[in-house]
């Protein structure tokens, strides 16, 4: 999934990014509240990891403004502040979960997954479109019961689309969300990967789930065109 990490301590931020990328998530970093708000409002994230002690606008204020502006991205607060008033304030301002440092990385991953489920109306632990099932925890993808093997990037791309199943996502958004800013992404990289995905996911099936919306972007949804 696409995660925004808001943490002013560079070492910790880099560590979290590295750890999440090893789990095949794509990560953006923000070192202060202002950057966090800009990024969260510009791009689509599946979850936001939010530190509370930030320079300038603090974590509480970031959460408050996001929620006030209608942003429903799930927020996991990760902070050294552990008193009951801190926790209550964080949760009441819009955070979905709260973890204190030092923390167990495994637990962090699990809570991140849990929190990202809260974005959708019904909350299964797996993503499903038609008979295509993606399990974010195990990274196993199956269609009609048969397992599909995907590369890391293909997996990320598919997960991103499936989390927004039914919605049309603009090309730019997809590119910025799935790929790291450091990666070399050319004009047709996205198209190439969509092609790859289609060959693995849709080719052997009647119902084509992945769809191109000309001029805008891509989407994945049930009731796709039968070919």
């Amino acid at each position: 999934m696409h995660v925004l990490i808001v943490e002013d301590e560079k070492k910790m931020a880099e560590l979290l990014k590295k750890g999440l990328e090893e789990e095949n998530h794509s990560v953006s970093l923000a070192f202060d509240g202002r950057d966090a708000l800009e990024l969260a409002q510009a791009l689509e994230y599946d979850a936001i990891v939010l530190d509370l002690m930030l320079p300038g606008i603090d974590g509480y204020e970031v959460a408050r403004r996001l929620r006030k502006g209608g942003n429903k991205t799930p927020i996991l607060v990760l902070t050294a502040r552990d008193t009951v008033p801190d926790v209550v304030k964080g949760l009441d301002l819009g955070a979905d979960d709260y973890m204190t440092k030092p923390f167990s990385f495994e637990e962090f991953l699990a809570r991140l997954r849990s929190v990202s489920r809260r974005g959708s109306a019904d909350r299964p632990t797996v993503l499903q479109v038609g008979d295509l099932i993606l399990n974010p925890a195990t990274h196993v993808v199956t269609r009609h019961g048969e397992e599909i093997s995907l590369s890391r990037t293909e997996f990320r791309l598919l997960e991103f689309l499936m989390r927004r199943a039914g919605r049309v996502i603009p090309r730019n958004t997809i590119v910025h969300s799935v790929w790291d800013s450091n990666d070399d992404v050319e004009e047709n990289t996205l198209d190439a990967f969509i092609s790859l995905l289609r060959s693995k996911v849709d080719r052997d099936h009647k119902v084509k789930l992945i769809q191109t919306i000309r001029g805008t972007g891509y989407t994945i949804r049930e009731g796709g065109k039968a070919s």
Partner: peptide, 22 residues
Amino acid sequence: ASHELRTPVAVMRTRAELSLRK
């Protein structure tokens, strides 16, 4: 004081945990 102590400890823990995952 507790914040200043927690921060480096968290970094050390996460660094070690990550290192051991693979």
